[in-house]
Design a protein around this nucleic acid. Structure first.
Length: 204
DNA sequence: TGTATGATTAAT
DNA sequence: TTAATCATACAA
């Protein structure tokens, strides 16, 4: 199952390029006991320095510091006092830019993490839900994606690549969710037939 | 120091 | 539609 991990270099591009490319890749969470949980990224959002919705739009602060880091840096913030959201930093150092990972399709879970209250395919269908499931919090903030570290990302499998290429899978691009600024920028991407997508746009 | 609010979620 | 719940940013 292990595929080549995406290097920091891979993230050294505009968030608008990285965000759609991340869909179909796998996020891997490695816990301290060595357990690994994998989920396919099915929904992302891009945030850029000139974007009013970006946490670093106004200025550099202690909270958004990680967004100014090197590509491949992990940015985690707490929202509504309850949930955490996971972002992967991209572009060049000092260019505050990141991808919000909004949903994961998790095919299987270790018993410890199972949850009877909802179907398995919805267990990581939302940015707060996936962080809760994978125990992602501010302790990971500022860290770097790397194989064997708490978190890394693996590229699309040959099979998935073929599906995208043949049109068997496609991406929907639409506006982002939950914002009060930059509401019209179409910087959210999700797998058109993804079971785990947090919220789908109304059919046009 | 005081206050308003948010890249959410689950329940009503 | 709304409550839950608090760290953070910004005003004062």
């Amino acid at each position: 199952m292990a595929l080549p991990a995406l290097s920091p270099d891979w993230f050294a591009r505009s968030a608008l390029e990285v965000a759609p490319d991340l869909v179909g890749c796998s996020l891997v969470r490695r816990f301290e006991d060595g357990t690994e949980v994998r989920g396919e990224i099915v929904e992302t959002e891009a945030y850029t320095p000139d974007d009013p919705a970006c946490h670093a739009y106004r200025r550099r602060t202690p909270r958004n510091e990680a967004m100014f880091g090197a590509p491949g840096t992990i940015y985690v913030y707490k929202i509504y006092g309850i949930y955490h959201c996971l972002n992967l930093v991209c572009d060049r150092p000092n260019i505050a830019s990141a991808i919000l990972i909004r949903a994961l399709d998790v095919p299987q879970l270790p018993p410890r993490l199972s949850d009877d209250r909802q179907p398995l395919h919805r267990i990581a269908a939302g940015p707060g839900k996936l962080c809760r499931l994978l125990e992602i919090d501010r302790r990971l903030n500022g860290g770097t994606l790397a194989v064997g570290a708490p978190l890394w990302v693996e590229g699309r499998s040959p099979h998935v690549r073929e599906q995208f290429h043949s049109g068997g899978r496609s991406l929907v691009q639409t506006t982002r969710i939950g914002l009060s600024q930059g509401v019209d920028l179409p910087w959210r991407w999700y797998l058109a037939d993804g079971r785990a997508v947090s919220k789908k746009a109304k059919p046009s």
